[in-house]
């Protein structure tokens, strides 16, 4: 195993299409719920401990070797918003292409074959981590970081927020990202039905509103 594979997987330049998604930040900016670094931090913290934890646990469970079809079903049950299910599958499909090039392996092939329209992104990410020889905890880290990195980057573009301030938000959240990755890895050792299902009502609600906007900068 090489730990540097985690840096490759978690890099914002990894060509998996994540840059087109704001993680709900575009809708939150429009509603005035993100206005500055402080409100961005509260948004990211809430997202990290809800959908971030849920996704990190799904990814860690996939990296652990749980049946990805069962995890995909668990992801569906944890994603009531059809707009977010569609985004997760689209991102899963894009990640799959990049991952198969980077870390080819039979498990990625099988997952791609079973879900030609894309499995949920965290399930693909966990399987990719496994294929790269990474541990469930590493998959948890990748998801935790991407959960807050996406909105922070988007808000720099949406609000013209100082990128130094956005990066400082991420740095302040680092201990909580650690905690979420560790919880995800611990949960991955248990049964799939008991994986965390932490949800964020406003992310679910505003994702549906955002999907109906005629003009938007981000896909979700």
């Amino acid at each position: 195993m090489t730990r540097s594979a985690l840096l490759v997987l978690a890099d914002g330049r990894f060509p998996a299409g994540g840059h087109a998604h704001s993680g709900g930040a575009e809708a939150a900016v429009a509603a005035g719920r993100i206005r500055d670094a402080a409100t961005l931090e509260a948004f990211c913290r809430g997202r990290l401990h809800t959908t971030g934890l849920t996704s990190a646990a799904l990814a860690a469970a996939a990296a652990h070797g749980h049946d990805p079809a069962k995890l995909d079903e668990a992801a569906d049950a944890r994603t009531p918003s059809p707009a977010l299910r569609a985004a997760a599958r689209r991102l899963g499909r894009q990640l799959m292409r990049a991952a198969r090039a980077a870390w080819p392996g039979p498990e990625l092939d099988a997952l791609a074959q079973a879900f030609p329209k894309g499995a949920h992104q965290p399930v693909v990410l966990g399987t990719a981590a496994r294929s790269a020889g990474l541990a469930p905890l590493d998959a948890g880290y990748a998801v935790a970081y991407e959960t807050v990195g996406g909105p922070a980057t988007a808000v720099v573009r949406l609000l013209g927020l100082d990128p130094f301030q956005a990066t400082a938000v991420l740095a302040r959240l680092a201990p909580e990202m650690d905690a979420v990755a560790e919880r995800a890895a611990a949960a991955a050792r248990g049964p799939v039905d008991e994986l965390p299902a932490a949800s964020a009502p406003l992310l679910d609600i505003t994702a549906e509103a955002h999907a109906g906007w005629p003009v938007r900068l981000f896909a979700s």
């Binding site: 709900g24 939150a28 509603a31 719920r33 993100i34 409100t39 509260a42 948004f43 990211c44 913290r45 809430g46 997202r47 990290l48 401990h49 809800t50 934890l53 909580e176 932490a198 964020a200 009502p201 406003l202 992310l203």
Partner: peptide
């Protein structure tokens, strides 16, 4: 409760 529950992503 885990942080951010009253922030813009969860209950605001």
């Amino acid at each position: 409760a885990p942080g951010g529950w009253d922030g813009g992503a969860v209950l605001a």
